[in-house]
Simulated scan of single mutants.
Amino acid sequence: VERRVEHRHLRPDLPQVAVFDTAFHTTMPEAAARYAIDVETADAHRIRRYGFHGTSHAYVSRKTAELLGKTPEEVNVIVLHLGNGASASAVAGGRCVETSMGLTPLEGLVMGTRSGDIDPAVTFHLKRVAGMSADEIDVLLNKRSGLVGLCGDNDMRVIRRRIDEGDERAALAFDIYIHRLKKYIGAYTAVLGRVDAVAFTAGVGENAAPVREAAIAGLEELGMAVDASLNSVRSPQPRLISPEYARVAVAVVPTDEELEIAEQTFALVSRGDADSPVHSDN
């Protein structure tokens, strides 16, 4: 028989801290957090938009403010966390007011294997017409969609190479990916009212210059632009890639979710309760 011993029983003197990936998004107003479905049903089953990648969005929005020489309270930032999983957030004065992922990480941007936003009636159609089960649809939308569903690859480096070789499926997949990004940048500009910076982060956001260039292209009327020479630089340091004349700063800010968790843990434990287990969603 397996014997389970909780850490708090082994070290009752050691504070236990839980840092949730959704915590940064708890500041969203109800208008952003609720789905437009029957309130009683939603409340009974806790159906609402929780968001994910919260530690990354918190860290990057704060580091972006530092890059601009300001405090988080002074700036409004659109954070684009682009990895195999991808999400966007609108951060006003250091507080998240909107994010693209919802009840689950499936909602929002086009991702490596996830569809992102989709008409929910597609699931009914697949059940009725294709005879697919709920589990099969789950696998389809989470593991066989997104970039891999569109072109068979979810590695942006491979997709860009295929585009250079004239692959039309890869080109279409890239265009769909960028189209969704632009929609969210535009929408979050409207939500924030004033945008001081757009920050790219995570594996694709930090390393794929063509993605950053394409996502910002055509948004000059929103005050956004990318300098080609600055955008081509590879660096592990936070940096601006927008020209000096741009009204909105465009930045590349490498994320560090582990450091964010450590800093939040240290801040919580430092406030007291060091003699008893601590639980936090902050």
Rank of each mutant, 00 (worst) to 15 (best):
I137R: 03
H25M: 04
E263T: 08
H125V: 10
T99S: 02
P210E: 09
A209R: 12
E2G: 12
M101G: 07
R157H: 09
A225S: 15
P72S: 09
E40W: 06
A246M: 11
L222H: 03
G203I: 05
V198T: 03
L141K: 08
G112R: 10
R95H: 11
A121N: 05
A92E: 15
L109C: 04
T55G: 03
D275Q: 14
R4Q: 10
A214Q: 06
I178Y: 01
R3S: 13
G51C: 02
V191Y: 01
H57C: 00
E257Y: 12
F174N: 04
M28P: 00
T189L: 01
Y184L: 02
M111E: 08
I241Q: 08
A31D: 13
V60Y: 00
G83L: 05
T265V: 07
A225G: 14
I78W: 00
S280N: 13
T99R: 03
R46S: 14
A90M: 01
V19S: 03
A134F: 03
A190C: 13
R34C: 07
H179P: 00
E220D: 13
E2A: 14
L240R: 15
V19G: 04
S235Q: 07
V60L: 02
V77P: 01
V39W: 10
M156P: 08
H53R: 03
A262P: 03
S242M: 06
S232G: 11
N142F: 12
V195A: 01
A23R: 12
I118H: 08
P277M: 07
I185N: 00
T255K: 06
F124T: 07
I216Y: 02
E165T: 12
A171D: 07
A44K: 11
A225V: 10
R3C: 12
D196P: 02
D13S: 15
G112V: 06
T201W: 04
D153V: 13
R247Q: 12
G223K: 00
A246G: 11
A267F: 00
L150W: 14
K63M: 11
V269H: 02
P29H: 10
A208C: 15
L109F: 02
M111R: 05
E258N: 14
